[in-house]
């Protein structure tokens, strides 16, 4: 087996033997229970409410669990000098980095598959399948971002804070752009500068608001072109993050 794949397998095994499966189960139980409770309070659209709420909660929960797991795992490896030991073996830095990314990507795919299951109660299987595929790609991106920040910042809290900030900003950027261009925004130099700054930040971020949408579960499947573009842009951004991470990793003195 190639060394990178071997590393990916050990990364997956580490996640399976750690607390991640139990935390995922807890997240599933919480989302399903809360959705069931809220549907009892609703006077109409109870099925849609359950699907939308559970999907939104599971999506955010999966991203947070994966980012926290990656940050904790990599910082522990760094503190225990496992990284130095691994690089002393016939394993290049690129193989190590990409092997880790593949392992965390596989963790994300497993989480996405598990988190799709309860949604089958409230949404058609084909919509759930597309939602799950999009979630797997989104988690691959979160994994790439978390790996990048954990290796660059070398601390659990800074890495988790940076990943969370990046993820929230990427998801809310379209809304922030709408706010900046809204009818209440006055025309002034300061406003134009602020709008330009918002547009510049948006240019650097992936459009996570367009991915893994609960709308797909409620109102029907997205157009194939729209879905393809969304997934393609997520994978492209993962490549960018992986390249940036490799660049930083190769420059580091260990």
């Amino acid at each position: 087996m190639p060394p990178a794949l071997l590393l990916a397998r050990t990364t997956l095994t580490e996640a399976r033997r750690g607390g991640l499966p139990w935390l995922a189960l807890g997240c599933l139980a919480l989302a399903t229970g809360l959705a069931a409770f809220l549907s009892q309070v609703a006077v109409t659209e109870s099925r849609e409410l359950q699907a939308a709420f559970a999907a939104a909660l599971l999506r955010a929960g999966a991203a947070f669990l994966l980012a926290a797991h990656i940050a904790a795992s990599l910082v522990r490896e760094s503190n225990d000098k496992v990284l130095e030991l691994a690089l002393a073996l016939p394993l290049s830095r690129s193989q190590y980095y990409l092997g880790k990314l593949a392992g965390f990507g596989a963790c994300g795919a497993c989480l996405a598959a598990a988190f799709c299951a309860p949604l089958l109660f409230w949404a058609p299987p084909e919509a759930v399948a597309l939602w799950g595929l999009s979630l797997a790609c989104e988690l691959l991106l979160v994994g790439a971002a978390s790996l990048f920040f954990a290796i660059t910042l070398a601390g659990v809290l800074p890495a988790l804070a940076a990943t969370t900030g990046f993820y929230l900003l990427a998801r809310s950027m379209a809304g922030i752009q709408l706010l900046a261009r809204g009818p209440l925004a006055e025309e002034s130099i300061a406003q134009s500068v602020a709008r330009g700054a918002v547009d510049a930040v948006a240019l650097l971020l992936p459009r996570l608001d367009a991915a893994t949408r609960a709308d797909w579960l409620i109102y029907g499947l997205p157009a194939p072109a729209e879905f393809g573009t969304t997934l393609g842009s997520l994978i492209l951004y993962c490549t960018l993050l992986a390249a940036a991470g490799l660049f930083d990793f190769h420059r580091r003195n260990l």
């Binding site: 939308a52 998801r171 809304g175 709408l178 608001d209 949408r213 609960a214």
Partner: peptide, 10 residues
């Protein structure tokens, strides 16, 4: 919409 983090339906 901005506060919905891309989940307006929810």
């Amino acid at each position: 919409r901005a506060a919905s983090l891309g989940e307006p339906a929810a």
